[in-house]
Amino acid sequence: MVNVNNMATHEHDYHPPGLQHQFEDMKQQEESVALGMWAFLVQEIMFFGGLFTAYLVFRSRYPMAFAAGSNHLDAFLGGLNTLVLIVSSLTMALTVYYAQKGKRMMQVWLIILTMLFGTTFLVVKYFEYSDKYHHGLVPVTGLNKRTKAADPNAPKTEGTYVNTRSEFQWHDEKGDKIILEAREKGYLTPHEEIGYFTNGELDNNKVRDKVRIFFWIYFVMTGLHALHMIVGLGIMMWLLWTAWRGAYSADYYSPVEMSGLYWHFVDIVWIFLFPMLYLLGRHFLAGGH
């Protein structure tokens, strides 16, 4: 606890080792660091906010296409990933707790656990993306699996189809059915009446283009979120190294707490992405419709 920064004349001042010289005391330093981090997080809210706005605009125009597209996401895997992130948030919160206590090995193990859960999230995400690739649901031509009619490995779940040009494809009788039912009940928006039908008949090309918007938003939002997870894992690597070296104590643990803020923020984004992307159309299929 003996200060190392002060000159002999100031020996009587208590001066924690982690205090930078421009701050009065640890409290002021911690508040300044937290404010800086929150300024960054507010910027991140704006960053994701633009995408949430795009979601809002297009979903309000084509709600049934969004519901039909949503039914092609695996809600179980999405929910599982939500739980994985929540567990990683708990281990992160406990890391901060033990950093405040200055317990080095507890920090190290909890950071390793946090990284493990973060990696699990990305692995599950990989399997989900891979499923979209195999079913022609990636909205970019050329990024889907090419499937010939004779290909015995062609996906069977949605009915075998041909995708020789690696395009985004839409074959969904259940989706067509919920759109037609919504039309009977008069639930379609004016944009949907024009956007799904040609001369009163359901037009698959038109529906596909609207569902494609949903998958664009799905890939951009979850992709940006996954990128944040990867950056978060990088931060965790650095945190693991510094914690291992015993850099944090009851007097100085701001880097742990700030990394925690980032990690929790990324968790919050997923808390919203999960219901907004995965759970839109399940009740149309589950109920007696």
Partner: peptide, 23 residues
């Protein structure tokens, strides 16, 4: 922290199953 964690898990599970009801 464990209570907060429990709330988050329960919230996720409710979200998952409520989405099956035709509200």
């Amino acid at each position: 922290y464990l209570v907060v964690f429990g709330i988050l898990v329960v919230g996720t599970i409710i979200t998952y199953f409520v989405s099956l009801l035709d509200l």
